[in-house]
Amino acid sequence: MILESDVRSDAASRRAAGPPAPPGPGRPTRGSTRSLGPVLASVSAWDADPLGVPVLDALDGRLGIALCLSGAVAVSQDGADTVLREGQLTCVDGTRPHRLAALVPSVVVVVGAEHQRVGLPPEGTRGMTAAAWSGETGVHGLLADTVGGLAADLDRLGDTEGNALGLMILDLIGCLLAEQLRKRAVEPAAGRRLLTLKILCHVRSKLGDANLMPEHIARHFGISLRYLQVLFAELGTSPARWIRDERLSRLRDDLADPGLDHLPVSVLGEKCGIPGASQVSRLFRAAYGLTPSEYRRAREAIRESAGGPAPGAHAGSATPVNVGDRVKCGPESR
């Protein structure tokens, strides 16, 4: 059994061993950015810059959680202001203007995910952005230690480990946001969004069940199918469409992993809850413009032409190329 204390102590020791040193005065900001399955992760060392810049542009509209690994960073968004100290977390929403300022040379780790995959629409993050949260205990501590460990390990993770870690980080982000919403549960909107996060966490754990249906989800949570549809409508989708898109996104992550090339597409599809090779191919092509086999070949062609690691791996300061980004950003909502 893996104990929380074991996870946290191991992550804390790795975090302490390997963060990039903050740059000296006048040196340029530097860092690494990499996709970890459903999560975009970035480790950055910043010069002191009292004026501040929107340094999280790499989030590209994602919902981000930032951890101050060392130094002090001023954060402003949605009319709120805070200063992140070492070991503190905050939420920053990439869909709206924000400002971060390194008050002293600092190292910051950021993880971001699409709002729909997290289960919180952009307006749902208002009231949570630019608030400093302690990364010492509970789910905040688990997320801080896991994210902090990326400072040492981001460039060393294999694709399979990276995808698995990204899924774990996505769940931890959902748990952290659910805890914040729980404090505001007296507000009707906050209560609905808290329920939505719980539902999505449950659905992710059942994605491999090809018989998972919206009716089953509604029954599990003791709500009507109509109310379930209302909750997903706030994310701009429907229950069935969200399940399909999440399955296809997870399948795409698996297909992008060279370590899983020995598994037939049909096996990966069944693992994601999509039975039958023909159905896997049809749904994947409709979403991404390529069949799964074509997607794998395109990934290999990009890797060979670049003469480097497979898409999703990172080297130096360049942002990695994701085959999916060359086709479409995600499953189409139809």
Rank of each mutant, 00 (worst) to 15 (best):
A16N: 07
S13T: 08
F284R: 08
S9G: 11
A66T: 11
V53W: 00
G324L: 06
L56N: 11
V118K: 04
P97I: 10
L283C: 07
G52S: 13
P50T: 07
A152G: 15
V7R: 15
W242L: 10
G191K: 08
A12N: 09
L170D: 07
R296K: 15
T196Q: 14
T196A: 15
R193S: 09
G24A: 10
E179W: 04
Y295C: 14
L231D: 10
L248W: 01
V327Q: 08
G26E: 01
G316A: 04
G141C: 11
V267G: 02
G24H: 03
V186C: 05
G37Q: 10
K328Q: 12
L3V: 05
Y295L: 14
W242N: 11
S13Y: 02
A151Q: 04
P311V: 04
H220R: 15
G316V: 05
G208F: 01
L260R: 07
M213I: 11
A132Y: 04
A11L: 11
L67N: 01
L3E: 12
G26C: 02
D155W: 00
H98M: 07
R182F: 05
V147L: 08
A12E: 14
A301F: 08
L248N: 05
G64W: 00
L283Q: 14
L3K: 13
P19C: 07
P311H: 06
S205F: 00
P292D: 05
P258H: 12
E294R: 15
D78N: 12
L283S: 12
